[in-house]
Every structure is written in structure tokens, then in C-alpha cells.
Simulated assay, not measured.
Amino acid sequence: MENYRNKVVIITGACGGIGEAIAEKFADAGATLALCDIRQDELSQTAEKCRQAGATVHSNAIDVADEAPVRGFCETVAQTFGTIDCLINTVGIVDCPGDVEELSLSMWDRTIAVNLTSAFLMAKYSVPYIKQRGGAILNIASVSGLANQEDATIYSVTKAGLLSLTRSEAIDLAKYGIRANAISPGSVETPLLEAAVDQAAQLFNRTRDEQWQVWRSQYPTQRFTSPQEIAELALFLCSERATNITGANFVIDGGLTALLPER
């Protein structure tokens, strides 16, 4: 396992699913953690789990799409721990359906703010500290940034934008010893996926098990990705073993995007 002792790692969206799995994995690796999420109670629970694993943790419930709290959070982290080494952005909302005609402007604006602007703001206010000794930025994107689904316009737009932001960060920040990469998962076994399965089962008049099977059958591996699998890759990409990996996007989707559907 990678050693993150004396490394300060910011993780956004640290409650539940991918963010929590990443936080726990970095805690086990010895990192000092700065965790944020908009959900205070769940954030406190995640922070306590990481402390029990031996990590030093600072946490704060903020809206990462709001500039002032983001600036304050990054400043506090740097003042408390002396620096910032890694930024991992996992925040995202998926409940934003609609085509270009149906989608409201308010939903368009909010999804861009949460899924894309938040990653920009977190980088803007953490990079001045990461520059001090170099480090890494990791953005959790999605296969929806590579190929689109019906009635999911804005989600795909934001994830494609996040991949482009990652490449720009890699190019512009390389001179400071900062690397930037992305991970693009397919469906991940999280509470969000559980809720989506329930909704789809009702919509298509299927049982819950039937809906799970329909979705799993789209994947060559016949299964979804676990948050822990994403966390393992995140641990590697931010580590000293990946010092010449930057501007890259790593797909974890069970072969979904490799598959050409039958005609």
C-alpha cells in the first residue's frame, strides 16, 4: 500500500459512496485528511471513521459550489496543517434529467455549479498551497463524459467539461510539479445507484431484481464497480509511484464503453 504519512489530502463529497471509500483508503495509508461535504451529520460520521483508523482529520460542511466557503476551507486547511498535497474532487449530482427542451435553466445552472464549477473552485484555492512542494489533483468524472445517454444532457455536459478541466490543469500546472488526472466510472455500487434502480423498476414495471439484472447485463463483466475499486486507483494516482502520469483519464466500467451493442 502507498504511504501518505505527512501528506495532506482534501476530499470533497466525502460522505457515502465513492468519497467515503476514498477517505477511508487514504486514512489507512496514513494521510492527514481534510474532508468536506454539504451533509453535516454524515460528514461527522465519516470523519470519525477516519479518526478511528488513525488519521488526523479536519472536516467542514460546505457547499463546494460557493466561492467564499471554498476559499475559507482551503485557507483553514493550509493554516492548520501547513500545506496541501492532494485534491480529490468526488462531488456530483445525477438527478438532473431532461433533454435540451425539457431541462430548466435553473437545473442547468445548478448541475454545472455542483459538478463542474466546484472542481474549478477547489483547484483555484488549493493550488497556491499544492505548488509549494508539488502534488496531485484527481477528478472523479464518468463514462457519461465520453458517451451520452438519452435525457441526460446536462450530466454528460458537466462530466465532459470535467475531463477537459483535468487536461487543462495537467498542462498548466505541470511546471509546478502538480499532476492532474481523472477517473471515469460506469455504474458504481452506491446509495445513489440503489435509488436509481428503484425508480427505474417502477418506471418499467419490473421487480427490483429484474431491473438490477437488466442494468448488469449491459456490462461485459456482468457487474458494477465497487467504491473500493475506485479508491484503490485513486490511492495509486496521487502517489509517488505515478509521478509521470498526468492529463490522463482512467475508465473503470466493466467494459461498458468497449462494447458495441448488438444491432
Rank of each mutant, 00 (worst) to 15 (best):
P191M: 08
N6V: 03
V9I: 12
I171K: 13
E2W: 11
C74E: 13
L105P: 03
A113P: 00
D41E: 10
Q218V: 14
A34E: 06
N60M: 11
L87F: 06
Q45S: 14
D66P: 05
L163Q: 06
V91N: 05
A34V: 04
S144I: 13
E232C: 10
C74L: 07
F73V: 11
D99I: 12
F120E: 07
N148Y: 12
R51S: 10
T207P: 14
L233A: 05
L105F: 02
H58A: 09
G255N: 05
P128I: 00
I183W: 04
V114I: 11
V188H: 01
T32P: 09
Q79Y: 09
L233S: 02
C50G: 00
L138T: 01
F236W: 10
V94E: 11
F73I: 05
G17K: 01
E75R: 07
P220S: 13
I93Q: 06
N89F: 02
T190L: 15
V57Q: 13
V64Q: 04
F73Y: 15
I137H: 01
T243H: 12
I137T: 07
Q40D: 11
A65H: 00
L193R: 11
Q218C: 07
G98S: 15
D41G: 12
I171Q: 11
R39M: 13
R206W: 09
A53M: 13
C86K: 01
G17Y: 04
A258M: 15
E229H: 03
T83M: 10
T80V: 06
I18A: 04
E67S: 11
G92S: 08
T166E: 09
W215A: 07
V251H: 02
I130W: 05
L256F: 14
L192R: 13
S44K: 15
K25S: 14
I38P: 00
N205C: 07
A170S: 10
E24L: 12
T246D: 06
I11N: 00
T207V: 03
G254T: 06
Y4P: 03
F73H: 14
A23N: 04
L256E: 02
E194Y: 10
C238L: 12
A21W: 04
G247V: 10
A14Y: 03
S104W: 01
A258L: 14
P97D: 07
V251Q: 01
Q52S: 12
L33T: 02
E102A: 10
C36G: 05
S187A: 05
Q79I: 02
S144W: 15
